[in-house]
Write a protein that binds this DNA or RNA. Structure first.
Lengths: 230, 230
DNA sequence: CGCCTCAAAATTGGATCCAACTTTTCTACG
DNA sequence: CGTAGAAAAGTTGGATCCAATTTTGAGGCG
């Protein structure tokens, strides 16, 4: 974690408040798994590492708490938050409810431009050998399908759920999830939308969300049971 | 808005951090309408009024931003946030999706204790001539029905939506909403649950949420159109 | 040997001070 | 007279310092 501001770095990409940049750095670290869940975040240590004072650190931690990435208890050090299996299952349930509804709203309004964008995103996902950006692309793909529904707050809500859900699956688990299967399901979803078959598309999306999560969750469950040693 | 800590007030109910108390005071003021939407929140002014420094004020504002009660833009003063008609409609849509789902999950699990609690809350609502606590009781009533579903995150999410939605209806609008109609619908919902008729209960709940919002929204729409003068 | 107590160290919370940015006001020029 | 530009005032952002709380650990007692 390198300092944000090199000493006497005044001109180039030095825009925005310090707090905002601390938030970005920490969020990136947490989402990428560099800061594992349960890690203590000492204000002074972070301040020293990033080359700033503790004030923006504290404000950043508050914002990250709001995003569900850290947990704050007064007079104790902030901790990178974790999600229980139950929490994750609940998140997938919420996704299933809200996304099928969004799809129902947006399907009749989807234009060729929307389909093109979705396919472009699918192509990018297929190319990725790296994993880091897969979840971001996955979200973009889904969001593209829901965009015509014009429900910005719902989308924002779902975006946060996506963010929080994915980081809790360690890399090996995400990879074994069968990205080829994901790809096939995404393709099928697009096809069903193009055919205008609302009911089948909704049903397929629901299965995609709920059943797709199943293997990930059971692997994670097993992992957590055995991996209780630190 | 009186100071939080009288000078040299050391012993009695002086627990918790200053930030937490600032959050409470400001949230109360905003939800009650004492601080209207669009009101500028100057840090120094608030600090002086509450008898604290600007640091806890700033942290409190960040937290309130996360709750959707204020809007922050860097280097500009915080503003009590407002919700557009579209936002409100979207909130009611989300409520309809999530609450019908929660009810479906919890209905088979409802016990006599749950019904008793719900009826107790209904009785309290009927007694209220005051309005301030009605929305809080309304939330408690709904939450009581969904409790057996054991979906704490979903409940928390809905709680925030309730908070944000109700404060945007000025008092006169809320009163004309026909609290008797609300009461009848709540009673009917309870009856349908007791009869175990899941489908009718869900349908009724959906109507209750979506149609109940309709008159409030159209009144508000009219009010905002005419009331553009400041 | 374990556990409790209490003091010292570490850490977070809050206040004050200074810097950066925004808004307002005043002035000069067209 | 109106407007553009610059100076001044006002407001927020960040750093440093002090206070309050928690954690650590050493010593004593059962």
């Amino acid at each position: 974690m390198r300092p944000i501001a090199a000493p006497a770095d005044r001109s180039p990409l030095r825009r925005g408040t310090t707090t905002a940049k601390v938030v970005e750095v920490l969020r990136e670290q947490i989402l990428s798994g560099a800061l594992d869940e349960g890690t203590q975040l000492r204000q002074e240590k972070l301040a020293a590492q990033l080359g700033v004072s503790r004030v923006p650190i504290r404000e950043a931690l508050r914002q990250l708490e709001a995003e569900g990435l850290v947990t704050l208890v007064s007079h104790k050090s902030a901790v990178v938050s974790g999600l229980s299996i139950d929490d994750l299952e609940e998140i997938y349930d919420i996704r299933a409810r809200l996304e099928t509804w969004l799809l129902e709203q947006s399907m009749p309004l989807l234009t060729e431009a929307d389909y093109a964008k979705a396919e472009e995103l699918l192509a990018q996902m297929a190319d990725l050998t790296e994993n880091q950006h897969w979840s971001s692309l996955n979200w973009s793909f889904h969001a593209a399908l829901y965009a015509p529904a014009h429900r910005p707050r719902t989308l924002e809500l779902l975006r946060k759920l996506y963010l929080n859900a994915y980081r809790h699956f360690p890399l090996p688990i995400r990879l074994t999830g069968g990205s080829d299967r994901m790809h096939r399901e995404h393709k099928l979803l697009l096809d069903l939308c193009r055919q205008g078959d609302i009911e089948r598309a909704k049903a397929h999306l629901e299965q995609h969300i709920l059943l797709g999560a199943r293997p990930l969750l059971s692997r994670l469950k097993a992992l957590r049971k055995t991996g209780r040693q630190e």
